[in-house]
Simulated assay, not measured.
Amino acid sequence: MRITGLFVKSLIAGALLSATALFGSAGTALADETPVPATGESENADGPEAAAPTEAGTSFRTAAAFRPGQTASAEASTGDYLYWVFPADAGQRPTVRATVTLPESAAARKGALTWQVDVYDGLRRRQPCVSGAQTKAVAADADTVSLRCTLRTVRAWAEPWSNDPLPGSYYVRLTVVNAQEEDLGMPVRTEVEAATPGAGGAYAVGGKLSEPLTPGITEASSETAVTASEPEDGWSSGWWTDRWIWTVVGGVLGALAGIAGYTLARPSRRA
């Protein structure tokens, strides 16, 4: 009985020590990854305190960069192609929202307008929307239209032939896709924002992309397209997920189940 008691205590102590070491190392790693600005260091234009852009680009190369949580705006004309870019990292599920306001009165428009928001990754591959109204028509007597596009969860890596979303720059393109010729050129006000909540440990995968997806150098010019700013905690730095918690809990439960099975199955000893 004494040997059995020592065996049980050693298993429980080992499980608790493993859990403590895992959570302790996770906390240390997260603390080490937290950037500490130097004394007197000021935020630059690309830093987390940078203001949201009030203009939009007209192509991938001139896209206006903004961060998730900011609201980018632009004054434009109906028929213009408007571009913005923001960063999305592994384990995040981006959602893009766009609002178009038509300041002109309903009497000035000849018909309904259909607006569309598209999202492209760093390789300029159009990513499908899994939910949300990506395309919507605004009636001739309406003044605003709201669009939304939720992408699939960004993966840490993928096969070369797949179209899975990967960490890097994501480009937003907003434009009208159906309008009468008389309505083209009308002034509009646009607002775009992006949210990148974490999808949780259920979507965590092994592997890691060596570099975030960003456009390469074009053949016609040595200049590259505008890329999104690096996330505040770096690319693919969020290795900690709730999957680790369930792994530790499963290990402890497995150890306890083994102890219970051993206790029930061991032969009884008679004095």
Score class of each variant (00 low, 15 high):
Ser210His: 12
Pro165Asp: 11
Val176Ala: 11
Pro212Asn: 02
Pro68Ser: 11
Leu174Tyr: 01
Asp89Phe: 03
Gly250Lys: 04
Thr190Lys: 08
Gly198Leu: 14
Gly168Ser: 03
Val176Lys: 02
Ala52Asp: 00
Ala140Val: 15
Ala156Gln: 05
Glu230Thr: 13
Cys149Asp: 04
Thr99Tyr: 01
Ala112Cys: 04
Leu147Ala: 04
Gly201Ser: 04
Ser237Met: 09
Val248Met: 15
Ala65Pro: 05
Val205Met: 11
Leu264Pro: 06
Thr39Ala: 13
Pro68Glu: 06
Gly207Glu: 13
Trp244Val: 10
Asp80Lys: 12
Leu113Asp: 08
Glu230Asn: 05
Pro35Leu: 03
Ala225Met: 07
Thr153Glu: 10
Gly200Met: 05
Leu113Tyr: 02
Ser236Trp: 02
Met186Thr: 11
Gly207Tyr: 09
Ser42Thr: 07
Glu43Asn: 12
Asn163Ser: 14
Gly206Cys: 10
Ala220Ile: 08
Glu41Ile: 00
Met186Arg: 12
Val130Lys: 12
Val100His: 04
Val96Arg: 05
Val145Gln: 05
Pro48Cys: 06
Val119Ser: 01
Ala255Pro: 06
Tyr120Ala: 01
Ala38Ser: 07
Leu113Arg: 05
Arg93Leu: 06
Pro128Lys: 05
Gly201Tyr: 01
Asp121Leu: 01
Thr20Pro: 02
Glu193Ala: 03
Arg97Asp: 13
Trp244Arg: 09
Leu209Arg: 13
Gln180Pro: 01
Glu159Ser: 15
Thr101Tyr: 13
Leu17Ser: 11
Val8Ile: 13
Thr190Leu: 08
Ala108Arg: 06
Leu256Asn: 08
Ala56Gln: 09
Trp115Ile: 09
Thr214Tyr: 14
Pro87Val: 14
Leu102Cys: 07
Ser59Ile: 00
Ser169Thr: 13
Ala38Thr: 10
Ser237Trp: 13
Val249His: 08
Cys129Lys: 04
Thr101Arg: 11
Ser77Asn: 09
Glu159His: 14
Pro215Val: 00
